[in-house]
């Protein structure tokens, strides 16, 4: 193909090929780690019962899947994660924007936010358990709490980063506070907000597994790992960890990337 200026244009690769290559590039290093794991497991440095190779764990995972137990655990964990983070996102976004938009609210909320942010999420859990018992609610509340704080902090930073001149432009056209909120502050801070959601997911996911590990509940990936440890079932422990990692990567890579590609990247507000 020859373009107007006479230079040779490179043939454009097909969309499928581009996506395929992207997937290959991001999975290649992981496969390499699995291979190392397999070798280490078989080398006999550590007894196979304590550190089984990848193939044994994969087989165990397959068994768990066949019995259906894996999916029950997964469903429980995801249920807690999604409900907790969703609650946290709703509250965190609303309060974060209010805090960024109003100096009065900021003066009151910021010290409180700083105070709670300094407490690790897992340390909140025992307190919540005192109120809710060892229950689903306790986990969900803990996750919502952590997610809300994280989202609030990022949203607040985002709103303050919205250029003054854009707020002025909207005001000059008679925009009400409501309009400013939805049409200027929210989209203007979206890059930060999405980063906040992403962080909230990651943190909530860690806390979820930690709280499940503390036991008491009959299902959940963390619970299953804990059970594996009690019965010296190393393959079960590692299988649980593997699923946790895979789920983490999938939420990060698909859900949130999708949101970003459709908003802030289209607007050129992030590159």
């Amino acid at each position: 193909m020859v373009t107007k200026s006479g230079t040779q244009a490179l043939p454009a690769p097909s969309r499928g090929r581009v996506i395929g290559r992207e997937i290959w590039h991001s999975t290649r290093p992981i496969l390499f780690v699995f291979a190392l794991w397999e070798l280490a497991g078989r080398s006999g440095i550590v007894h196979q019962a304590l550190f089984p190779p990848f193939s044994t764990v994969a087989l165990r995972l397959y068994e768990l899947g066949q019995r259906g137990l894996l999916f029950v655990d997964l469903a429980w964990s995801l249920y807690r994660l999604i409900v907790g983070v969703a609650l946290g996102i709703l509250l965190g976004t609303a309060f974060g924007i209010l805090m960024g938009a109003s100096k009065k609210i900021e003066v009151w909320m910021l010290p409180i936010l700083d105070f709670f942010l300094s407490i690790p999420g897992v340390a909140i859990y025992p307190v919540v358990v005192l109120l809710f018992g060892l229950s689903n609610q306790a986990i969900i509340v803990t996750l919502a709490f952590e997610a809300a704080l994280t989202v609030m902090m990022n949203t607040w930073t985002g709103v303050r980063s919205v250029p003054r001149i854009l707020i002025d432009a909207a005001r000059s056209m008679g925009a009400s506070f409501r309009t400013l909120f939805y049409r200027v502050m929210l989209p203007g801070s979206l890059a930060f907000i999405v980063t906040g959601y992403r962080l909230a997911f990651t943190r909530a996911w860690r806390i979820l597994v930690a709280t499940e590990l503390m036991g008491g509940l009959g299902f959940g990936l963390g619970f299953r790992i804990q059970q594996g440890r009690q019965f010296f079932d190393a393959a079960l422990v590692l299988a649980g960890v593997l699923v946790i990692a895979i789920i983490g990567v999938i939420t990060e890579r698909t859900l949130l990337r999708w949101v970003e590609a459709r908003t802030v990247e289209r607007w050129g507000t992030v590159t």
């Binding site: 250029p163 854009l166 002025d168 432009a169 909207a170 056209m173 049409r183 203007g188 507000t269």
Partner: peptide
């Protein structure tokens, strides 16, 4: 501020999340 005055700023002040048409429609 009010719609009886139109303001053009030195820094353009277009909303990055709106297309040309959406900016004008605001």
């Amino acid at each position: 501020p009010g719609l009886d005055r139109g303001v053009v700023f030195q820094e353009f002040a277009l909303f990055p999340w709106m297309t040309v048409e959406e900016n004008i429609c605001f």
